[in-house]
């Protein structure tokens, strides 16, 4: 095996060139052409105008909110999971919903949050009255967090499981309070899991477009909806490609910041 040539390398490299290198190179190439096919830097100039910058900032803000809420909900859940008796069963239950088609879950939320849905029925019964829930920022962030939660819980859970419990006992024996132990021992030691989870949530949250369209209507514009709009509606591929290049750069930056942890692919 050692002296043999690596016969598997050629087909694999060919596949990677065809489906990873060339497509990304073509996106970069395309971003330098305007809608009529002339060479231009105009797409990037346009990207730096207030309209696009505002959209980018709001997209990053929403992605940030989604990541923070996911983490706030996921960390205690992951912590509680490690303390449970039937861990394997709970984990299975956690993963199971992610096998259900994403569109179905989002579609179910359309019914749950609708004017005559469950939530509004409950609100009316409580005497608060029917509210507009669908097509608001709240519903967008809620559904997004819902989708991403398992991808945040899993890496944090794994990090917590790897934590040596004697370190926690040692801290408690030395007189640290529960909060201090968490802040100085538990959290720093599970930081890798948190980073992996944030990476798995933040990048897809920047590029959501299906959830945005269905749940937020046209209220929220993310980088994902902008790319989809340019490629499939206005047919201005150059501009779409320029935004995509920005998204790729953002992705690389986040990966460098959080490390290339294999957080797993998130479907959306």
């Amino acid at each position: 095996m050692n002296a043999k040539r690596n016969v598997y390398l050629a087909p694999y490299l060919a596949w990677m060139a065809l489906f990873i290198v060339i497509p990304i190179a073509l996106i970069v190439y395309d971003s330098f052409f305007d809608i009529d096919g002339g060479f231009t830097f105009g797409n990037y100039e346009k990207f730096l105008t207030p309209i696009y910058l505002k959209m980018t900032v709001s997209s990053i803000w929403y992605a940030f909110l989604i990541t923070v809420f996911s983490l706030l909900i996921a960390y205690p859940a992951a912590y509680a999971l490690t303390k449970m008796k039937h861990k394997q069963l709970w984990l299975l239950l956690l993963i199971l919903p992610s096998w259900v088609n994403l569109l179905l879950k989002v579609y179910a939320f359309l019914g749950i949050f609708g004017t005559y849905g469950f939530v509004n029925g409950a609100l009316e019964a409580l005497g608060i009255g029917r509210q507009q829930i669908l097509f608001t920022d709240f519903s967008f962030v809620f559904v997004s967090v819902y989708i991403f939660i398992p991808f945040m819980i899993l890496p944090v859970y794994n990090a917590l499981e790897d934590l040596n419990p004697s370190l926690v006992f040692a801290a408690r024996d030395l007189g640290a309070s529960g909060w201090t132990t968490f802040r100085k021992v538990v959290f720093p030691l599970t930081l890798d899991g948190v980073k992996a989870g944030c990476q798995a949530v933040f990048i897809p949250a920047l590029s959501l477009f299906m959830i945005t369209r269905l749940v937020a209507g046209n209220r929220v514009i993310t980088l994902g909806t902008a790319i989809e709009q340019h490629f499939l509606v206005t047919q201005d591929w150059g501009m779409g490609a320029a935004i995509a290049v920005f998204l790729i750069i953002a992705m690389v930056v986040i990966m460098l910041l959080t490390g290339t942890g294999q957080a797993g692919r998130v479907r959306r």
């Binding site: 998204l247 790729i248 290339t260 692919r265 479907r267 959306r268």
Partner: peptide, 9 residues
């Protein structure tokens, strides 16, 4: 790369 890339890309 393909695992972390967003679907849109």
């Amino acid at each position: 790369v393909l695992i972390v890339s967003p679907d849109v890309i």
